[in-house]
Amino acid sequence: MNRLIKSMVIGIVCLPYLFAVAATKTDEVVIEVMDPRGEIPPPPFNAPAERISNLDGKTVGIYWIGKAGGDNFWDNVEALLNERYPNTKTKRYQGIFDLGDARAAEIAKEVDTVFYGVGD
């Protein structure tokens, strides 16, 4: 009997809390937060340059930043180019990650197309 009364008392005491929790769960809580990112003004758009239709008779530039082992890769690229396109010349360049406008302009005068290898 005592146990039954105790259970009823506990039930009555807890009832409001149960209703409160249920009510909270059905309510949507909305938080407003501000965008933390700095604005990046989009640079003027440039489409990729038109491609050359084939490599025959063309000069292919190969630019590499000179990190270890990369020369082994590019030596093979150059060999394959010479093998598959006997009339194609290659010209190798090495320099820093960002070759800069002046050097880019110089290279553009010397070759028809470029492989630009900078990905470490």
């Binding site: 990729p48 340059a49 491609r51 050359i52 553009a108 197309t113 492989f115 630009y116 990905g119 470490d120």
Partner: peptide, 13 residues
């Protein structure tokens, strides 16, 4: 100047 940019997959993004 038609250019192809070579990178490893780790640096692709």
């Amino acid at each position: 100047m038609p250019t192809v940019y070579l990178t490893t997959s780790q640096f692709n993004e």
